[in-house]
Design a protein around this nucleic acid. Structure first.
Lengths: 254, 254
DNA sequence: CGTACGTTTGATCTTTCTCAATAATGGTGG
DNA sequence: CCACCATTATTGAGAAAGATCAAACGTACG
């Protein structure tokens, strides 16, 4: 257990994107004990069926959540970008109902779940920031249900690319006009409920239509606005603005 | 604003299903101010784009969350059963990213969002219970992504019927061998990402195979275990047991 | 420089959708 | 109780999106 200050600043920034915190709260977050580690692609961070006793904060690299059907088909249900904690979803649940794995190589800071629970208990404003993040993650799950349930392959993929663009932009990691997409076509298929073959064809079609440019893992968007339209993308569900609706500070009570 | 005690006991029971509360916490929940109202089918409880300033607790009847694509296709992303609060998902978000509507006629208790926020601030254990509920709702969203993304029509519908059975059973409203299903085939289609026509055919096939029995809106399951298998249904994601991991330190080490 | 992984392509097949009717059903006013 | 209307359920025929199968092609890297 180290206690250096640097790494968790990324998490703090992520939380403050939507929920600004006081100095005291910030330093409470920064002084969480953690264990740094570098993980290889596909390393498990949480495993379905296990009690989730720790939470990995992504310092660099990407991770994804996945579920499997009875006959082994995989569905990726979320992607996590650097700065995000990969396990708020299990904060208060006894057994993980899905797995989280590294998408790329990356550095993480493991935080004990108990410490996280303790933090949000003693620092209600931090608890609020975490809850906001949890609610936004849920909003993204809902949009994915819509994406996979009601949009055709072309729209689905364009939508995913748009979401990724805005989330990376929000973290200051890229802009909406292009970025390094760390997913294979098979993973894109698992995230969109398609087959890799079809993903390949659709990506090519998007490229042929001048909606995306690809070279290696880099994608760029010559005409963002048109891609946005094709992807039926409306960023509202990302709730990227600071969420102010919670009015007053907290008078003590017990 | 009334302050009778009865109605909110249903909400309390719902929360305590997974998070038992102390006497003091219970009475704090029960003394939430609320406004009772009877709502007709398809009445909005929350509307996309609006600031969610109140939360409807379902006292009787069912509700659903839905999102729309740009060209008007509907996806139902969640169903709520009696006893549930229909708007924990917007507890700390400024603008609703989806709508909630009544599925059936039903009685609700409107609780001001501010009061709810106040409650969880002053009563951390209640806040915890609410957070557990929010996390379980997110777990259901994830399962729906899998359901809609990776399962065929037959499995998808069987899965939905199983989920419904267990959730109703948990509320003491039915058992897993049958219940009153308040959804039209069109709504079932919107919940599974299918068309009404196909839902009709698949339901008939399930019936022909002796997996379900239908008469009016009533469905029953002559062979639950087989339905469970056909629906690839594993109840883990519903987290129906009391979630104890928070209160007590873990017997395991890290 | 060979092996593993990822991408691309073609041909064919299936599930599910679409379009279009027709039948039930439930609720309403008379 | 009946006639009427609006939903909802059911059925059929044809079309289409996407899946499956199989193979070839690139590329990274030990």
């Amino acid at each position: 257990m180290t206690n250096t200050k640097g790494p968790l600043e990324l998490l703090l920034r992520n939380l403050e994107l939507r929920t600004p915190l006081s100095e005291a709260d910030r330093s409470a977050v920064l002084s969480l004990p953690f264990t740094p580690k570098t993980l290889e692609p596909s390393t498990y961070t949480v495993r379905e069926g296990d009690p989730p006793d720790r939470c990995a904060v992504l310092l660099s690299g990407f991770a994804y959540r996945q579920k499997l059907t009875g006959d082994g088909d995989r569905q990726i249900v979320a992607i996590h970008v650097p700065g995000e904690a990969t396990d708020f979803q299990n904060l208060l649940l006894d057994v993980a109902d899905h797995s989280v794995q590294m998408l790329t190589r990356g550095d993480v800071a493991f935080v004990a779940r108990r410490d996280l629970q303790e933090l949000i208990r003693t620092r209600p404003a931090v608890g609020q920031a975490v809850l906001v993040k949890i609610l936004v993650e849920a909003a993204i799950f809902r949009e994915w249900v819509l994406n996979v349930g009601r949009r055709d392959a072309r729209t689905r993929l364009a939508h995913l690319l748009c979401e990724f663009a805005l989330r990376l932009e929000a973290e200051g990691l890229a802009d909406r006009y292009g970025y390094e997409l760390p997913m294979t076509q098979e993973q894109l298929a698992d995230a969109t409920g398609l087959t890799p073959v079809h993903v390949n064809r659709v990506l090519k079609a998007l490229q042929a239509d001048g909606l995306i440019q690809r070279s290696k893992r880099n994608v760029s968007f010559p005409d963002w606005e048109r891609l946005r339209q094709v992807g039926d993308f409306n960023q509202r569900y990302l709730h990227l603005e600071p969420q102010l609706s919670v009015t007053e500070p907290h008078p003590r009570s017990g």
